[in-house]
Each structure stands twice: as structure tokens, then as C-alpha cells.
Computed example of a mutant assay.
Amino acid sequence: MALLHEATLSPRKDELIGPWMATRSWWDGESERAPVGSFRLDDPAGEVGMECFLFGSASGSTLFVPVTYRGAPLPDAETGLVGTMEHSVLGTRYVYDACVDPVFVATVLDTIRSGGRHADLLVRRADGTEVVREANATAEGEGVPSVPRHDPGLPVIAQDQSDRTTIASADVDLTVMRRLGEGPPGPALTGSFEGGTDLRLVIVSG
């Protein structure tokens, strides 16, 4: 269960992530773009927020952009910092490209291995009441017990390419499909939203 707070953000997520996307090698050059779905993954330790966006356009690719939210900087991950934003409840949040965040890598591998799914969303309102929010995108692991684990305390190395990002760790390599398409073979985290189903988002490639 991912606990969300009813809050104001400055800058907004789209204001922060949009300009950053345009600097990436996997950017397709389509400026008229907006989020078409998102889902959350749940950090068992409850420390790191993980939100995975699908950005669509009328004529370009659908882009997959996972980010993590942290209350303090992630050591040795400056190149993966998207930016910071002020959260009216939680204070300063450091927003990272999730591909450089070992907690994201560990969580995705656990989800693929166990056949888990996206986190349910619980919103805590300003008056303290809580309400369940339906996600507008879903994700599910294929359930492959042989998929290795990753220690969330160990760093990972991410490398952007023209349509994907590869992640290397001591135990396993992952391919994150930035422009959604076929991708390499291997156990995967698959996603669905109103514009597509069974999309291979993150693939265990080594």
C-alpha cells in the first residue's frame, strides 16, 4: 500500500520531469506530450516513493519514466537527479531517475520474481481521513522464481541509449524500455493503461 498525502507541490511533477525528459538520449523530440497513466511501487521499508509515468503524444512514442522520491540525497547519484520539489506535508523531496536508485531496482526484481503487482493507493486528506484511489495504469511481474535479488543498499549503474536504459548491478542486468516496444527477451514487469496492454516495461536481461 502506497500512502499519498493530499498536498501542494512546487514545482509540479510535470514541470520538473518534462524539461528533464527532453535532455535524454531516448527523447523522441515530441514536445506535445502529457501523462497518460501512472502507477506506484511499494518500498517495503517505507522510505522511498516510487512512481512510474507513461507519457503519451499524438504522433510520437509512449515514454516510460519511473522516478523515485527521497527525503535526502541519494549518495553518488548526482547524475540521476531530476530535481527537487517542495511538498507541503513532507518538505523537500529529491526526485531521481529511478534507474539510478537501488531501491527501485530491488523492488522491480522482487515484483518480477514473485508475480507481484503495482501498489494500492491510499490518500491521506488534510483533515486526516483516508480514501483509496484507483490507479490509472497497472503493472504486474511475470512470476519467475529464478530472478535474482538485489541488495537495496548497493549502488547500480544506469546507461541511457536511444530507446531504453540499461541498468547494471553486481547480480543482474535490467533493460528499462523508455520508448515502449518489443524489447529483449527475459522475465519482465508488464504494464497496461487505457492506450495499451501487456507492455514490457522492465526486463531482466542478464
Score class of each variant (00 low, 15 high):
Asn136Thr: 13
Arg133Ser: 08
Val65His: 00
Glu6Trp: 01
Trp26Ser: 07
Val103Met: 04
Arg124His: 12
Ile203Trp: 05
Pro35Lys: 05
Lys13Cys: 03
Gly115Lys: 01
Asp42Arg: 15
Gly56Ala: 14
Asp28Ile: 08
Ala139Ser: 14
Thr84Val: 14
Val202His: 04
Val105Gln: 00
Cys52His: 02
Ala22Pro: 06
Arg124Phe: 04
Gly80Asn: 07
Asp120Asn: 14
Ser38Glu: 14
Ala58Trp: 00
Leu154Ser: 15
Lys13Ile: 04
Ser162Glu: 15
Glu78Asp: 14
Arg164Phe: 05
Pro187Glu: 10
Pro66Asp: 02
Glu6Ile: 03
Leu189Val: 00
Val172Gly: 05
Phe64Cys: 01
Glu32Asp: 15
Leu90His: 08
Arg40Ala: 11
Met177Gly: 01
Glu30Gln: 15
Glu86Val: 09
Ile167Gly: 03
Val131Tyr: 10
Pro187Leu: 08
Thr79Val: 13
Pro148Arg: 09
Gly115Met: 03
Met85Ala: 12
Val89Leu: 09
Glu6Arg: 02
Pro155Asn: 11
Ser61His: 06
Asn136Ser: 13
Gly71Met: 05
Val202Glu: 08
Glu51Lys: 01
Val48Trp: 03
Arg70Glu: 01
Asp14Gln: 14
Thr166His: 06
Gly183Pro: 02
Val89Pro: 01
Arg149Thr: 12
Arg125Trp: 12
Thr23Asp: 07
Asp110Asn: 07
Ala58Gly: 15
Arg24Thr: 04
Ala77Gly: 10
Ala188Thr: 11
Pro152Lys: 04
Thr111Leu: 07
Thr190Ala: 13
Asp151Leu: 10
Gly141Trp: 02
Arg40Thr: 06
Leu109Gln: 09
Pro102Asp: 10
Leu189Lys: 00
Arg149Gly: 01
Phe104Gly: 03
Tyr96Leu: 09
Phe55Glu: 05
Met85Arg: 13
